[in-house]
């Protein structure tokens, strides 16, 4: 009940600041369109038939980062000119406050992912695993966004202002994106680079998403592994966010 009240307020914030949707989707969308047009030709040579379908999973992760980062900004704005402090003395559980905001980021991520998927349709992307695949993709997107937004919520309460926050988020997102299988397959890699990419949890998320889109069969073991991994990561990031919020009043 409280969660819905807060979620509703946060969604209104998002629509009031609709440019945040545009800005966070702009870059992944450019990648999607440009790479499909430019890199698609050269990638055919190494056996990737539809490069748009190949990069879509990585761009889904990228778009989640964008949407969830801007949800962290909300904390700064609400503190400076909003109800951040008023809510903390209202009869509302701390966990509901975090959950409301985290779920808003999830909703925003879904909106952006759906837009990306619709655009991908024009590049002949289809989901090879059909309806079950779509459901599993939605589940993975939900968990990914939940994890990232818990993380950005906690980070935003750790850092003093939004400029530092933006800088830190940029410094986190790009290495995670490039040190993953977002843009190329990991098959030909070896050594330290391969280890780094395999340690990146998003590599596994992207791989499973990619398999669901490109391959007709669902590898249950991989899917279960990634879902469990994400559930654990969600638990950790949510607890951290909650802990940070409780620390706000422990002066």
């Amino acid at each position: 009940m409280d969660i819905l009240t807060l979620l509703h307020r946060d969604i209104k914030w998002r629509f009031h600041n609709a440019f945040t949707i545009v800005i966070t989707i702009l870059q992944p969308m450019l990648w999607l369109v440009l790479y499909s047009a430019v890199a698609g030709q050269s990638m055919k040579g190494i056996g990737i038939a539809n490069y748009t379908a190949f990069v879509l999973p990585g761009l889904i992760v990228l778009v989640s980062f964008g949407a969830c980062s801007s949800s962290g900004i909300m904390n700064y704005l609400m503190k400076a000119d909003g109800s951040f402090y008023r809510i903390l003395i209202a009869p509302v559980k701390r966990s509901s406050i975090v959950l409301g905001q985290v779920l808003e980021a999830v909703v925003c991520t879904f909106i952006e992912v759906i837009i990306m998927c619709i655009v991908s349709l024009f590049f002949s992307v289809t989901i090879a695993t059909g309806f079950t695949g779509v459901f599993l993709i939605a589940l993975l997107v939900f968990l990914t966004a939940f994890f990232i937004s818990g993380l950005t919520y906690a980070i935003s309460l750790c850092l003093p202002n939004e400029v530092i926050y933006e800088t830190v988020m940029n410094a986190i997102v790009l290495p995670i994106f490039f040190l993953s299988t977002a843009l190329f397959p990991a098959d030909g890699l070896y050594g330290g680079l391969k280890i780094a990419i395999n340690l990146n949890p998003f590599t596994h998320v992207i791989n499973v998403l990619r398999a669901l889109i490109l391959q007709g069969n669902i590898v249950v073991r991989d899917v279960v592994f990634v879902v469990l991994l994400l559930v654990v990561m969600c638990g950790i990031s949510f607890s951290w966010a909650l802990h940070r919020l409780k620390k706000e009043t422990a002066l």
């Binding site: 409280d2 009240t5 307020r9 209104k12 914030w13 009031h16 600041n17 609400m78 000119d81 909003g82 109800s83 951040f84 402090y85 008023r86 809510i87 003395i89 209202a90 009869p91 509302v92």
Partner: peptide
């Protein structure tokens, strides 16, 4: 908490909500 409320030194209003939406939000919180 449900029996008190506080107007802080700095105003605490959501500027992305309208006047009435702010009031309704508060009533839902309580």
């Amino acid at each position: 908490r449900s029996k008190i409320s506080c107007v802080a030194q700095r105003t605490s209003i959501d500027t992305h909500l309208s006047l009435k939406e702010n009031m309704i939000f508060q009533s839902k919180l309580y």
